[in-house]
Design a protein around this nucleic acid. Structure first.
Lengths: 186, 186
DNA sequence: GTCTATAGATCGATAGAC
DNA sequence: GTCTATCGATCTATAGAC
């Protein structure tokens, strides 16, 4: 039985990923967590919105620690970028998991958490662009490539989920990894 | 005042695009269409699910006529591909509109209309791959490029919406158009 | 064909016992 | 801290007058 807040947040994240914000009902949340509404509102006094906010925060936190921080190392930008692809592949369960931020962006939640969603994608593209510049890309080329990579990941997740074929995501990662290689710089 | 079924479907499409399936409520639908529930259920006897199905059908139909059909011309594959990018740019309102199929794919609707969503993306990637082969791409390269283009479009729409910056979509289209150019073939 | 009124279910959220 | 019971609002859908 789960009772730790972080355990609950993990389950909440999966539910929001599968159904979006509007589609995630408290009845499913009580079922999947095994917690009554009393417990849930004790952990999250702001209710469903608070649950979603906690999940958004945790995702942002995970990326900060596992993706952005390693990418900040000024001496080894290529290693940071490579590490990003490895972690992203793992995080999205090799294409079987969708992106919470993407789901919320195409959902009602976009109007409820605009700054959180914006910050996530802005941070990601900026960090990657910086690393690409350090790796040798020219300024504008780095920004374009970063945009292409982040969009490519999001789109591959949509496509993989729509077609029920996680391999699409794996192929996209391989392709985008090559795209950031030094041989491709403009 | 709208009363034609196709006029209503247009409005429904916008509502579903903005809120997803679960987030689109009948109260907003009655407000935006100006029709009472009686009229709506007269037009769509299956209710909300029927409304969504009509919208999905219309989108698929639009793509069939304006994108896939021109791409089938065996003698001018490059023209068909170019035409696709132009129409897609127009269809998604230069990046201000999101993709209904993408929104449904990351939503509850994915379990409700799996075959419709799958068919949309499968048709698109297949048509494009065929055109790319005719344009000179090797078989596997054509499939990969088609996947990259469709995913790139979807991802750019997610990113553009998340950051509130339609220009991201315009840049992606330009980039992907170049990607399908003959100079890029493997 | 369009409306109003309302049913019946489910929603998110709260109260209070334990 | 967790439960059950229940609130009021909102949801989709239906009935029936016009």
């Amino acid at each position: 039985m789960v009772t730790e807040r972080s355990d609950v947040t993990q389950i909440l994240a999966e539910i929001f990923r599968e159904h979006g914000y509007a589609g995630a009902s408290l009845s499913e949340i009580t079922n999947r967590t095994g917690l009554g509404k009393g417990s849930l509102y004790h952990l999250f006094p702001d209710g469903k919105e608070g649950m979603a906010r906690a999940v958004l925060f945790e995702v942002a936190d995970w990326f900060e620690e596992n993706v952005f921080m390693p990418m900040r190392a000024p001496d080894n930008p290529d290693g940071g970028i490579d590490h990003m692809f490895t972690e992203v592949l793992r995080f999205f369960d090799t294409g079987r998991r969708t992106c919470l931020m993407g789901a919320f962006a195409l959902d009602d939640a976009r109007d409820r958490f605009p700054s959180e969603i914006q910050a996530y994608f802005l941070d990601w593209t900026r960090m990657l662009a910086t690393a690409l510049r350090r790796s040798g890309f020219e300024k504008n080329a780095a920004r374009e490539a970063a945009e292409e990579v982040v969009a490519g990941i999001q789109g591959a997740l949509v496509l993989a989920r729509s077609l029920g074929d996680p391999a699409i995501f794996v192929r996209a990662i391989k392709r985008l990894r090559k795209r950031t290689g030094l041989d491709q710089q403009v």
